[in-house]
Simulated scan of single mutants.
Amino acid sequence: MALAGFTCFFLLYGTQPILPQLTHEFGISPAMASLSVSAGTAAMAFLLIPLSLVSDRYGRASLMRWCLFGAAVFAFGSSFAPDYFVLLLSRICLGACIAGVPAAAMAYLGEELAPELRSRAMGLYIAANALGGMSGRLIAALVTEYLSWRHGLATLGIVGLLAAIGFLRLIPAGLHFFPQPMQLRPLYSDLRTIYADPGLPWLFWTAFLIMGAFVGLYNFLGFRLSLEPYALGPAAIGAIFLLYALGSVSSVLAGRATTRHPRHKIMLLMSCCMAAGISMTWASSLPIIIAGLAILTFGFFAVHAVASGWVGHRAGQRRGLVSALYLSSYYLGGSVIGSAAGWPWEQFHWAGVVVALLLPVLLVIAMTTLRLRRLSDS
């Protein structure tokens, strides 16, 4: 499962460090270039629920196997795109395939592991997500620096195919899976029950807001650092994504901390870290900007680990659907806010991006303080 999580993020965000190269190659604006990231995450957001129903009906492991192979094929194919429309289309198909993995992964872990192990396992799974996101961005940037962006995306596709083969050989069949019906009437009933829960809708909103702020900042920081006085190349910008290693650490630590401390307190502290990190990137000093990114990254993955583990704890019998709703909110936030941050960048430069992305994090802090603390550890 760690390999699956690694591969998804390895493939999904391959265009993020090369957005300046895409603007030059296709003659498009930074906001339009960011759609190469948002198109894939939006496809994931919209297909997570349908694929979670497929997962509930036909099984988790088989769905994840097919989807990983499909994602690797489309990742490789995107390197041959003759124009930006075809590139976007291939990234949409890639996101559609990847959606099958998280749609089944949280439910698979919830079914196959004892309750006391789920939070720690989710922390490890998200740590692999962070490592995959870091590795994919770094490899794409390095290959782009010395060859071209097309070679960078092709390299990701080849590695993704090898990882899919490894996943196929390693994943055990689910021993505690029981097929669920795909009828619409029970689905509507489940949705009403889920959104009547006092905590789940707020956790969905948390996912939307933190992912939007995180993706938005990383989307457009590369444009800022490619300009004077920094003038960094693709490899140097890609090296910034090594900070994702902090996410691997923080997600594991946060998962363990929930066994000793109330979840809402950990979320509040880590959300404040996110706000502090975003604010620090307003500075003109490159070391301070990097430090701000490190603090943001540490806080983001910790909040995500706690929130996703909390969702799994409250999910009940419909783990697949609840997981899909959480992750749909998560990726939709990355798509909507992540691309919308292009407007303040084009109008007000980096100061506009910082102000715009602080707002979602401040909303998370307010929700954690006013709403989620009432749930305690229920």
Rank of each mutant, 00 (worst) to 15 (best):
L12G: 01
A96D: 08
P234V: 06
A236Y: 04
A105P: 00
S34C: 05
S308Q: 13
A72T: 11
M182K: 03
V37T: 13
R374I: 01
R120Y: 09
R65Q: 13
T15W: 02
L332S: 06
F214R: 03
A75Q: 13
M106V: 12
L142N: 11
P30E: 13
G199Y: 06
Y146V: 14
L225Q: 09
A257C: 00
V303P: 10
V303L: 11
A245I: 15
A61T: 14
Y13D: 14
P50Q: 08
A196N: 09
S323D: 02
M64P: 01
W350K: 07
T15N: 13
Y58V: 06
L161F: 14
L153S: 05
L63H: 03
S339L: 04
L269W: 07
R256Q: 14
I210P: 02
L63E: 04
M106D: 00
P50T: 04
S271E: 08
A276C: 13
S378K: 12
W149M: 12
G100V: 08
L372K: 06
V143G: 05
E111D: 15
S135Q: 06
S250Q: 03
P186L: 00
L187H: 01
L35D: 07
G95W: 07
A207W: 08
L358Q: 14
Y146E: 10
A275K: 07
I165C: 12
R91G: 09
S79G: 15
